[in-house]
């Protein structure tokens, strides 16, 4: 939970740095930063430049599959983005991850609230149970959902008994199964930051509200919810961003009709070896996500955080 809390802090680092003690060298901070920042610069920032330059390459005339030369063919972007084969999965990624984020918030917020305020001495154990799924391979858990949601699995069986689904079942494979998997895989990322900010809410504030005749729900709406906003922002971002780029859930729990942009990106690399198209798609995905995140943080930041 320290992690979630810290991620929230990194998003908006409001702490003022400590006064610099005179005994320290001026260059010490740069020496401390150098190795790590160099690593991030070379293996995170520079690759983004390579990604962009790759996205402008064209195939070598008469060359082998996977052979490209550096050009400045911005037509790659136009060609890719006007193709239904690519822009539909792009839209679908944001719709699926948007729905998964809302669902994870609806499940994760009450869960975090319960752990923060109503769990008593069970609190630490419950927190461990929230992160426990991480300790089983992500792929095996997703594959487990495929079996659980299959026609002969537990869920369809139960739904069939109460008559909600017919004999055909049909939950796996479908959009519903993909969204179930996405919500599941990123739920802890939603729950932990919300818990971290709820834990910091001073219970005396809520008591004060009650003393001033606030109904429980009003107290929640006016006191607890606004104070938990940093956690909600961190949690929704930590769910939405990885979910939008994920392709494992769509591949394991959906059909070709549920492909997301990640599926296309990895297909271009592994099956077609069309690196420029792969780079175009990655770059567009990143641009879309950064735009959405900026708009979101600004909106939420100005309306609710005050």
């Amino acid at each position: 939970m320290a992690i979630a809390q810290a991620i929230g802090d990194t998003i908006e680092d409001q702490r003022t740095p400590p006064p610099d003690p005179k005994k320290r060298g001026r260059f010490t901070p740069y020496l401390l930063l150098l190795p790590g920042m160099l690593w991030l610069a070379i293996f995170f920032a520079v690759p983004l430049i390579f990604l962009f330059s790759t996205s402008l390459q064209t195939p070598v005339a008469g060359g082998e599959v996977g052979e490209f030369e550096q050009t400045f063919n911005f037509g790659n972007y136009v060609e890719t983005l006007t193709d239904e084969y690519y822009y539909v999965p792009l839209f679908r990624s944001f719709i699926y991850s948007g729905i998964a984020t809302v669902l994870a918030l609806l499940i994760g917020y009450p869960l975090a609230y319960m752990i923060a305020f109503k769990s008593g001495r069970w609190r630490n154990l419950l927190l461990v149970m929230v992160i426990a799924p991480f300790f089983v391979s992500f792929l095996l858990r997703t594959i487990a959902w495929r079996q659980i949601l299959a026609d002969e699995g537990v869920v369809v069986g139960a739904l069939r008994v109460i008559g909600l689904v017919g004999d055909t079942g049909g939950i796996y494979p479908s959009a519903l199964a993909v969204i179930t998997g996405l919500t599941y895989n990123f739920l802890p990322f939603m729950t932990l930051p919300i818990y971290a900010s709820l834990e910091r809410v001073d219970p005396r504030l809520i008591e004060a509200g009650r003393d001033l005749y606030a109904k429980p729900f009003t107290g929640f709406r006016k006191i607890t919810w606004p104070l938990s906003m940093p956690g909600v922002v961190a949690g929704t971002l930590l769910t939405f961003i990885p979910a939008a780029g994920d392709y494992v859930n769509a591949e394991l729990l959906g059909t070709g009709k549920n492909s997301m942009i990640g599926n296309r990106i990895q297909y271009e690399f592994f099956n077609v070896r069309d690196y420029p198209t792969m780079a175009v798609l990655s770059f567009v995905l990143m641009a879309c996500i950064l735009t959405i995140v900026l708009v979101y943080v600004r909106r939420v930041g100005s309306d609710d955080l005050v």
Partner: peptide, 18 residues
């Protein structure tokens, strides 16, 4: 902050292009 806010496909594919 940026590497945490970048989807894994983008991190993976950009490093691959390098």
């Amino acid at each position: 902050f940026l590497p945490m806010a970048t989807p894994e496909v983008v991190l993976g594919s950009s490093l691959l292009t390098l």
